[in-house]
Design a binder for these strands. Structure first.
Length: 595
RNA sequence: GAUUCCGUAGCUCAGCUGGAUAGAGCAACUGCCUUCUAAGCAGUAGGUCGCGCGUUCGAAUCGCGCCGGGAUCACCA
């Protein structure tokens, strides 16, 4: 049982015995660093039952706890604050208990099936910074949920069909001259993206021309020849036209190859990939079911809708008058399909906050339809990535490309390392690997340390930092630990048998703080899982690394005179290294051995 | 207009299930490399926690109202 729980239970007991009061639980919090103690109980809420002054109440509870909880070394009272000091013995026992083990101990009873959907790209253009945030979040949340004891299925739904896909296809057909990724040396997704832009350019020119002839805006946009052509192409696609389909398959193939490279570089992956070309028809069964149950209604023109006005939302159309379905219909169908397929307990959609309304409606309709699993649906809604001048706009060319961004980060890592004279004795291949680890680490940490639901700012003019609250700083501390351990090994120091050296250890204040931090590792992972927030992990790992950095600076480890202390400090460092490595892996960030 | 998210140091962010004097990093300025990796450590300076009212022994944190910003409110995806 953890110490906070024990203290809480005993406090409840104390209140009962001292004042005859029944209280559910008493919560302790971390003692403010300016005061002596490890855990603090605020006694103000108990004055009602004690009918005594804050100081007296705190002292009485303190005395009771001291007598009944062996781990307590001492306590002090400041106004209404009861500060508890936990003895070294407790922390040293904890230290022994984690020796050589993983810090993670997932709760098996928590073993739920969780689907995490993320990425969801369109196959008409390459991935950009917004996708990067999505991918990193989805991947990291998946890792965190796994660490918290869930069975996670990572999924991706690829938007591979529709009018926007036809745009790049048509443009390539018209102006591509048979260009392929091989022939021009361009990554497939970038090549297709180029033709998407190309389409837009010609289309705009046509619209402008029509407008010049005095045709109203809306009509010009609809009547432009290129618009009519892609609409025709979409119809052909839906009719399974051989020529259109093979063009579609070829160009999507290029895109997938490009995406695979980007995903690989980002370090994300999926257990199951869905394609909208297979799922867009889904959902019609649900309509029939909904109509039968009376959840959905039919209008005179034959269109079908869900009336959500009683819930403070609008009417949502699910089937057009012509019988075709809309985006929402697909999502209803896909959710049902997945529920049948996997029997998930939870399903997390990693999608930007611009779709908050969409998911509200989606979940509500599924609940109204009476599906139990609908309670397990969750929209992991994250804020947009903005540039100093505002939103990224592909039309204005202000989109930050994912591949380019990663390249730049790696190049900056290289440049910085060379300036600092780092890693000079490494093999060339190891150097390249190191620059990747550092550059991509910096990028990932920069994005993940921010609370997902907040919008975040990215300034391309200022490169992402490598100092301070960053991945390279955390990696650096890991590297220092690894260097110590290598040297210890060379010096034949054997710290395997913890029982030999632990008896002669008195904890320094910093060592105790570090042990407390390690002790909180699992709680932190659980919290991050509950909040679906990698930022919780990022902040934890940074705090730990920062504390260690101070410790490392102030405390001799290999240079310590007493051998038992050397061994203790090495083992402590090693444990911290493990915590850093594990924590970073939950963010999808690697740590190097040297840098 | 309605719904919703956000507003903390010059900048980027923590803290928010109410608790003690609001924390980091960057940028600025000062020190510290013949001692375990200086991508580091220590220090100085920088805040009416958007504004007001309320609840409370206690509010950055909870509630209400303003002000400012974003997003959404299609038989688009």
């Amino acid at each position: 049982m953890n110490i906070e729980q024990k203290l809480s239970d005993k406090t409840v007991e104390a209140l009962e015995k001292l004042y005859g009061a029944t209280i559910d639980k008493a919560s302790f919090e971390k003692t403010n660093p300016d005061f002596t103690g490890d855990l603090t109980l605020v006694v103000f809420p108990f004055l009602k039952v004690s009918k005594k002054k804050p100081e007296d109440t705190a002292n009485e509870i303190g005395n009771y706890l001291k007598e009944n909880v062996a781990e307590i070394a001492s306590f002090n009272v400041v106004k209404g604050f009861l500060n508890i000091v936990i003895g070294d013995t407790f922390w040293l026992n904890y230290f022994k208990s984690i020796n050589g083990k993983s810090l993670l101990h997932p709760a098996p009873e928590n073993n739920q099936v969780v689907m995490v959907e993320y990425s969801s790209p369109n196959t008409n253009k390459p991935l950009h910074l917004g996708h990067v945030r999505n991918n990193l979040l989805g991947y990291s949340v998946s890792e965190i949920l796994k660490a918290a004891g869930n069975k996670v299925i990572k999924t991706n739904i690829v938007n591979d069909r529709g009018i926007h896909i036809c745009k790049s296809m048509l443009a390539w057909q018209k102006w591509g001259n048979g260009e392929t990724p091989e022939s021009c040396g361009m990554k497939g997704d970038h090549l297709v993206g180029k033709y998407y832009v190309e389409f837009d350019k010609h289309y705009k020119a046509e619209v402008k021309e029509l407008k010049a002839k005095g045709i109203p805006d809306a009509e010009a946009e609809k009547k432009a020849p290129l618009m009519l052509e892609i609409q025709n192409m979409l119809l052909k696609w839906e009719a399974n036209d051989k020529e259109v389909r093979s063009l579609w398959e070829m160009m999507n193939g290029w895109v997938y190859k490009g995406f695979d490279e980007t995903y690989k570089m980002l370090g994300v992956d999926f257990d199951k990939i869905y394609y909208e070309s297979n799922t867009y028809i889904l959902g019609k069964n649900i309509i029939d079911e909904g109509l039968a149950k009376g959840v959905l209604k039919r209008r005179p023109d034959n269109s079908v809708y869900a009336d959500l006005t009683p819930d403070g939302l609008d009417e949502k159309t699910l089937l057009r008058a012509d019988g075709t379905s809309v985006y929402m219909t697909q999502d209803l169908g896909t959710a049902l399909e997945r529920a049948k397929e996997t029997g998930f307990d939870k399903h997390i959609y990693t999608v930007g906050n611009e779709q908050d309304y969409h998911f509200k409606v989606l979940f509500l309709i599924l609940k109204k339809l009476g599906y139990k699993w609908a309670d397990g649906l969750y929209h992991l809604s994250y804020g947009m990535v903005e540039l100093p001048e505002g939103k990224m706009k592909s039309r204005e060319g202000t989109v930050v490309d994912a591949d380019e961004l990663m390249e730049e980060m790696i190049a900056t890592a290289k440049k910085t390392a060379e300036e600092l004279g780092k890693a000079q004795d490494l093999e060339e291949a190891d150097k390249q690997q190191l620059y990747r680890t550092i550059g991509l680490g910096a990028l990932k940490y920069f994005i993940l340390k921010v609370d997902p639901k907040k919008k975040m700012l990215f300034n391309p003019a200022e490169s992402i930092d490598f100092n301070g609250n960053t991945a390279p700083f955390i990696q650096f501390n890991y590297v220092r630990i690894r260097a110590l351990l290598r040297k210890a090994k060379e010096g034949m120091l054997n710290f395997d048998d913890i029982n030999v050296f632990i008896h002669n250890v008195t904890l320094l204040p910093k060592e105790k703080e570090l042990l407390i931090k390690l002790y909180n590792f699992n709680t932190t992972v659980q919290q991050a899982a509950a909040e679906y927030s990698p930022a919780v992990i990022a902040n934890y790992v940074y705090d730990l690394a920062k504390e260690y950095s101070q410790y490392y600076h102030d405390t001799p480890i290999l240079k310590e005179e007493k051998k038992d202390l050397i061994l203790f400090r090495l083992q402590l460092s090693s444990d911290i290294g493990n915590a850093i490595k594990t924590g970073m892996s939950l963010l999808g960030i690697e740590v190097p051995e040297r840098m």
